[in-house]
Simulated assay, not measured.
Amino acid sequence: MLPAYAQQEQEELNADRPDNSQGPGIVSRGYVQLEAGYNYQKLNDRIRTYAYPTALLRVGLLQGVELRVQGAVKDSVIENGTSRHVKGWGPLSVGTKVRLWEESGWRPEAAINAMLVLPVAHELFKPDNVEPQFSLGFSNALSETMDLSYNLGYGWTDGEPQRSYGANITKQFMDKVSLYLEVFGNKGKGEPAEHQADLGILYLLLPNLQVDIAAGRRLNKAAPHHFFTTGLAFRLPR
């Protein structure tokens, strides 16, 4: 994502939501940032899922190193003649993001994100074991108001390995508004690949408060049918 800012002297607010192509941006040392939102997804004609609130807490520990804690309350609606609701806490994830190097010429800025999904959740959503998730995030500035972010991920879901990718182009307008277009997907072992695309808008209300809205749909039949998300990113004053 492009850094969002109202004035040049303000510390940049760089959020990892709502896009899936999380770039290499890291919360600066001494700052605490909370990113939270609401997600709706229609998997197919029978199943819809909700997550509210989703929450990601990011703490700048050192220059170029942040602590990350992530979780969500989930609600699944399964329709098969009658509706069945299953609600509870999703898995808690803890980890870190570490900057590898700064952007230089055509060399992108890069960071590694390492998370552990813990078996701490409602029985329906809880993994049997701790599941590691890794991703490499990159970003290239295409101009003063446009950048390209992309990532590659590998981890385990429900005990099976899964690969993922994401890429987006973000354009900043009038210092406060940014628009992005994104494609992303994943592939589990023995499963068909899932590909999706979405469009999102970010609006900087204050130098430390950004709101967002995004919607997307599937690019192939194996992927979830469509989704919608909205939320905010708030950085506590230091």
Rank of each mutant, 00 (worst) to 15 (best):
residue 118 L to F: 01
residue 74 K to Y: 05
residue 113 N to V: 05
residue 73 V to F: 14
residue 120 V to E: 10
residue 99 R to C: 03
residue 79 E to S: 11
residue 87 K to W: 04
residue 118 L to Y: 03
residue 103 E to R: 11
residue 68 R to E: 05
residue 103 E to T: 11
residue 115 M to Q: 11
residue 86 V to Y: 06
residue 78 I to S: 08
residue 98 V to D: 04
residue 120 V to K: 07
residue 119 P to G: 09
residue 115 M to C: 06
residue 96 T to N: 10
residue 95 G to C: 04
residue 108 P to I: 01
residue 93 S to I: 05
residue 76 S to W: 15
residue 110 A to P: 08
residue 89 W to S: 13
residue 121 A to T: 01
residue 83 S to Q: 10
residue 84 R to F: 10
residue 123 E to P: 13
residue 107 R to M: 14
residue 105 G to C: 04
residue 116 L to Q: 01
residue 96 T to E: 10
residue 110 A to E: 07
residue 69 V to I: 12
residue 105 G to Y: 01
residue 98 V to F: 03
residue 114 A to M: 11
residue 83 S to V: 10
residue 112 I to T: 12
residue 115 M to L: 14
residue 83 S to C: 05
residue 80 N to D: 15
residue 79 E to R: 07
residue 115 M to E: 08
residue 117 V to I: 08
residue 81 G to R: 00
residue 97 K to Q: 13
residue 104 S to E: 14
residue 122 H to E: 09
residue 98 V to N: 03
residue 103 E to I: 12
residue 70 Q to A: 15
residue 84 R to T: 13
residue 97 K to M: 08
residue 124 L to E: 14
residue 106 W to F: 14
residue 103 E to G: 15
residue 88 G to C: 02
residue 75 D to P: 12
residue 87 K to E: 08
residue 95 G to T: 06
residue 95 G to Q: 04
residue 116 L to F: 01
residue 69 V to D: 06
